Amino acid sequence: MATRLIRPDLVTSSDGPFLAAAELTQNEARTMSSHSHARGQLMGALSGLVSVGLDKQQWVVPATHAIWIPPHCVHSVRSYGPFSGWSVFIAEPHCARLPREARAIRTTPLLREAVRRAASWPGIELDQTQTRIAEVIVDELAASQAQSLGLPSPEDPRLVRITDALVSDLSDHRRLEQWAAWAGLAPRTLSRRFVTETGMTFAQWRQRARLLRALELVAEGVAVTTIALELGYDNVSAFIDMFRRALGTTPGRYLANEIPFTAPARPPAE
Rank of each mutant, 00 (worst) to 15 (best):
I259R: 10
H72N: 14
K56D: 15
H173V: 12
P71S: 02
A38R: 05
T226N: 08
L255S: 11
E155W: 13
P71E: 13
V218M: 06
I90D: 01
P187R: 06
A181N: 07
R192A: 15
E216Q: 14
D9L: 08
W182P: 01
R193V: 10
R132I: 08
E125H: 14
A256S: 10
V52Q: 04
S144M: 08
L5V: 11
S34N: 11
V160D: 03
L166E: 08
H173W: 07
T250P: 04
T225V: 13
G53W: 00
A66N: 00
P71Q: 09
G248N: 11
W205P: 01
Q130C: 09
S171M: 06
S51G: 06
A63D: 02
I240A: 04
E135T: 12
F18P: 09
F239R: 00
P99Q: 07
R213P: 02
Y254C: 07
F243T: 02
A263T: 10
I227N: 03
Q178Y: 09
V218P: 00
G48T: 04
R174G: 06
R161Q: 13
R213H: 12
L229V: 14
R112V: 13
A142L: 01
V74N: 10
L19W: 01
M242P: 00
P260D: 11
H65L: 05
Q41I: 04
W205H: 15
A181C: 07
A180N: 05
L159H: 03
A165S: 13
H37P: 04
V195Q: 11
P187E: 11
A228N: 03
S144E: 04
A118T: 06
L126T: 07
S168A: 15
G252Q: 09
I124K: 05
A146Y: 02
F239V: 04
L24G: 15
D172P: 05
L247E: 01
L159N: 09
S148Q: 13
A209C: 07
F202G: 07
G123Q: 05
T249S: 05
A21F: 02
I105C: 01
C73A: 13
P109I: 05
A118G: 11
F239P: 01
T12S: 15
V167C: 10
M1S: 15
S34V: 14
G85H: 08
A219G: 05
D169P: 03
M242L: 12
A181L: 14
H37C: 00
V50L: 11
G232C: 10
L231S: 06
E258G: 05
S36T: 14
E177Y: 10
V195I: 14
T225K: 13
L141A: 07
D9K: 12
D55G: 02
P93W: 06
H173C: 12
I124A: 12
T225Y: 08
P109L: 04
V11R: 15
A63I: 02
W59Y: 08
R106E: 12
P17K: 05
A214Q: 02
G53I: 06
S84A: 15
S153Q: 15
I162S: 04
S237R: 15
D164Y: 04
D234I: 03
C95G: 00
E125S: 15
T12D: 14
G81M: 05
A66L: 03
P82K: 07
V224R: 03
Q26V: 14
T201Q: 09
S13C: 06
S153Y: 11
G81T: 09
G150P: 00
Q26D: 14
S14V: 01
F18H: 04
A246E: 09
P157Q: 08
A146H: 10
L212R: 06
F261T: 09
